[in-house]
């Protein structure tokens, strides 16, 4: 399976993502934001970081970069696009995913491990994943998911909420909500379920000695689903 990771000026999780994808068997290519064509890929990843210094709004400038038109075309023809953290912010700014990531409720940069509960498995990312609650890492200042009441109704009706923040046991409440996100939303899918944006970083949890292995579960499962 072939993947591509887009590098924007200010991306800083691009190489971590490259390491993770290769570790689980993807043939990965790094793509510069100023290119206009994507290599043939089964998966495009928009990595975490601070693209364009978070100028204007997080992800807004990257959302208009040269490569992004090819990413949008790829996504609209059903190609898998995964946005992590800043990548999630970019996906909302392009309009590929509904809503927006606001500044964290407590105005603090949050960097810690959290638990997320997978909500929808009817997609290539989480189909048949053998763990419901994953321990992943978050590191962001703008991760507070927000959308209008009408949009919320629509994404709930379409089962577009990919994952919720929760505690170790899977309880989703204020105490397990790190950033004030609406309904504890940690990740969102598009209606067609080929685009996933999420704030937590699976690529930071791929080594049992350094962190944890719940990210490994995510990548292994994704690869398995892509091969079917």
């Amino acid at each position: 399976m072939k993947s591509s990771v887009i590098i924007f000026p200010g991306s800083n999780c691009d190489r971590d993502m490259d390491v993770a994808l290769k570790k689980f068997g993807f043939k990965n290519t790094m793509v510069w934001h100023n290119d206009d064509k994507l290599p043939k890929s089964d998966l495009i990843v928009l990595p975490g970081g601070f693209s364009y210094g978070d100028y204007l709004r997080c992800g807004s400038i990257a959302g208009k970069s040269k490569i992004i038109n090819s990413v949008i075309d790829f996504a609209k023809t059903g190609g898998l696009v995964l946005g992590i953290c800043n990548g999630f912010q970019i996906l909302t700014e392009t309009g590929l995913l509904p809503g927006v990531l606001l500044q964290n409720k407590n105005i603090e940069f949050i960097c810690k491990n959290v638990f997320v509960k997978i909500n929808d498995k009817n997609n290539k990312y989480f189909n048949k994943i053998n763990k419901e609650i994953l321990e992943l890492h978050i590191a962001h200042n703008e991760g507070n998911y927000f959308c209008s009441d009408d949009e919320l109704k629509e994404i709930e009706n379409n089962n577009q909420i990919a994952a919720y923040y929760c505690d170790e046991k899977g309880n989703c409440d204020n105490d397990s909500n790190p950033n004030g996100a609406l309904k504890n939303i940690a990740g969102i899918l598009n209606k067609e379920k080929n685009i996933l944006g999420m704030m937590p970083h699976p690529e930071r949890m791929i080594d049992k000695y350094l962190s944890g292995e719940d990210g490994s579960i995510f990548f292994k499962n994704l690869l398995k689903n892509l091969k079917i």
């Binding site: 204007l56 709004r57 807004s60 208009k64 909302t92 700014e93 809503g99 927006v100 927000f146 959308c147």
Partner: peptide
Amino acid sequence: KKLLANLVI
């Protein structure tokens, strides 16, 4: 509409 404001918020 296209860049300076995000009309969601």
